[in-house]
Write a protein that binds this DNA or RNA. Structure first.
Length: 258
DNA sequence: ATGGTAGCCTTGCTA
């Protein structure tokens, strides 16, 4: 089973690139972020035309996550537990075969020293609590999405430039490590230890052209999923197209259950 | 020293 995550930065604008990529790669499950539309405005028909079902947590203008899948999702839950007053569309879970999958869009948190950074850290604490609850079930699961956390200085083109950025803050990295230390595996790093592999390149200042990016899109696997991990990589090809997102897909492949 | 880009639509906000 091939599972991918892709921050599309507007599903409306990115639909041609997304459709082309789905046709070429044929992933079984795709976790989307920053769809930037209400669920009612999601292009479900176009995706159905390629054989993909969609489950959507929408929001106008900002955020928004979705799960695309060849087989319909089961037991879909929308939103991240822990703050009933949180209106932001950043989390959805569904089950595909025997694998639980979440599409998440972790808050950016910039600028630091503001309520935005506080919200980011609080959201990470909620994600840790949800992860602990999932781990207690001892099932294969994949938490995939835009974490807005660059785990180490090897995951950013110029650490000094990001010293005061929320994506590279020690506290953001600490909470990301705390999540991993519960027992999750960063699928990409199982197969690729080399530094300077990125999933995001800013639109400004020729960052894509110069390969000056950050690795902030991750697939974190439970032990039962990691035991079935066959491959994982970043697919840079969509980022090079006209009208590209500033992110590119990251994927992993899991062996079918015995 | 500052602005640079993109997407939304609010002529500013978020990233």
């Amino acid at each position: 089973m091939k599972i991918a995550t892709f921050n599309v930065n507007s599903i409306k604008v990115r639909l041609p690139i997304l459709l082309g990529w789905l046709e070429a790669v044929k992933p079984d499950v795709v976790c989307l972020q920053e769809i930037k539309c209400l669920a009612a405005d999601f292009p479900a028909l176009e995706l159905k035309g390629l054989g993909y079902h969609a489950e959507v947590v929408g929001q106008k203008t900002y955020n928004g996550v979705a799960l695309l899948s060849r087989e319909p999702a089961r037991d879909v839950t929308k939103g991240l537990a822990g703050d009933a007053g949180d209106e932001q569309a950043r989390y959805i879970e569904g089950t595909f075969g025997d694998i639980r999958v979440a599409s998440l869009y972790l808050p950016n948190g910039n600028p630091i020293g503001t309520e935005k950074f506080t919200y980011k850290l609080a959201w990470m604490a909620r994600l840790k609590a949800r992860t602990a609850a999932l781990l207690a079930q001892e099932i294969p699961f994949v938490l995939a999405g835009d974490y807005n956390v660059c785990p180490t200085d090897a995951d950013v083109f110029n650490p000094a430039l990001f010293r005061d950025d929320a994506l590279c803050q020690p506290e953001s990295r600490r909470q990301f490590r705390a999540l991993l230390n519960l027992g999750l595996t960063d699928a990409f790093r199982v197969f690729h230890q080399e530094p300077h592999r990125y999933s995001f390149w800013d639109y400004q200042q020729g960052r894509w052209y110069r390969d000056e990016g950050l690795r902030i899109d991750h697939l974190l696997l439970s032990p039962q999923a990691a035991d079935r991990l066959l491959a994982a990589d970043i697919d840079k090809s969509p980022r090079g197209k006209d009208k590209a997102s500033d992110h590119t897909p990251v994927w992993c492949e899991l062996r079918a259950s015995a």
